[in-house]
Simulated assay, not measured.
Amino acid sequence: MTAVITLKPRAELLVPEETDAQRRVRLGSRVLVWLFTGLLGLAVVLLATALATMVFYKGELVRIGPDNAYIGGGPANSTAFGSLPLVHRLVYCLVGIVRATPIIMLFWSVRTLFGLYARGKVFEPENGRSFSQIGGWLCAYAVSPLLCHLFLSATGYEIDRNWAHMASFQAFILGLLVFVIGQVMRVGREIEEDRKAFV
């Protein structure tokens, strides 16, 4: 007499069928990956253009004053940016890099997060890390105007003193919240992994 034993495959080898909601998240995330890739590229191009303009442009159409920077003209108390000494313009290039880097890295981090979603990774450790990075870059974006103001004030190169904005405070609070959400996601994943290992 022969006994036939049917073995079930191990649970971790089973690939669950994708639900409609998971498919929508995956496909929507692909669109957002392209969107944030475009925004990332645009931010890099704008920074490169701004740096080239600050260093090489000598005309009157780019001006800076105590309240703002202007393109295409400005008030009487503004100065043509190209008329500033090269050292002054290079200092403002450094400020531009410091101010733009958090925006570029924010787009990079959000793109990375939606890339994970597009690959079907929703509650993985990488998701928590991406959330924390997004929160960190939001906070960096919020404090960069203050840091640049302090640096420019200390060096005597400050012209535009309009640095305090409510949007920076809001971005900092949002950044803290997103950072904490990322940490909570990572702790939740660790708890889930410990529970699976215990069973």
Score class of each variant (00 low, 15 high):
T155E: 07
V143F: 15
L152M: 02
K196R: 13
R24L: 09
R186H: 11
F114N: 01
I103H: 02
G175E: 08
W137L: 01
L176I: 14
V31I: 15
L152I: 03
V122L: 15
E18M: 11
G74Y: 12
A11M: 09
E193T: 12
I104P: 02
D20V: 14
F151I: 11
K121Y: 12
R30I: 01
E126D: 03
V98F: 08
A100C: 11
F114R: 01
T101Q: 08
S132V: 06
T2L: 04
R89M: 06
S132N: 04
G74M: 08
S132P: 06
F36A: 03
I173C: 12
V45P: 09
I134R: 00
V15K: 09
V55N: 01
I103W: 08
A140K: 02
A118V: 03
K58E: 15
G59K: 02
V143Y: 11
L46C: 07
I159K: 10
R30L: 03
V87G: 04
R26C: 06
W163V: 07
M54C: 00
Y92H: 15
S153G: 11
R24N: 04
A76T: 04
A100G: 10
W108R: 06
A80E: 12
Q133I: 05
L174A: 15
A3L: 06
I104A: 08
S144A: 13
R161K: 05
G41T: 04
T6N: 14
L86Q: 01
A142K: 02
V178D: 05
M1V: 14
W34C: 00
S78D: 05
V122H: 09
P102A: 07
I159A: 09
A118M: 05
S168L: 00
A48E: 08
K121N: 10
T53E: 10
L51D: 03
A164C: 10
T79E: 10
L7H: 07
I5D: 13
A52R: 09
G72S: 07
L150G: 06
F151R: 03
N77A: 02
L61K: 12
G156F: 08
Y141Q: 05
L86K: 01
T101H: 07
T53Y: 10
V184S: 05
V31W: 15
C93D: 03
Y141S: 00
L106T: 05
E193G: 06
C139E: 10
M185R: 10
P66Y: 12
R195T: 13
R161W: 00
G136S: 13
Q183H: 12
A80I: 06
I173Y: 10
V62F: 14
L174I: 12
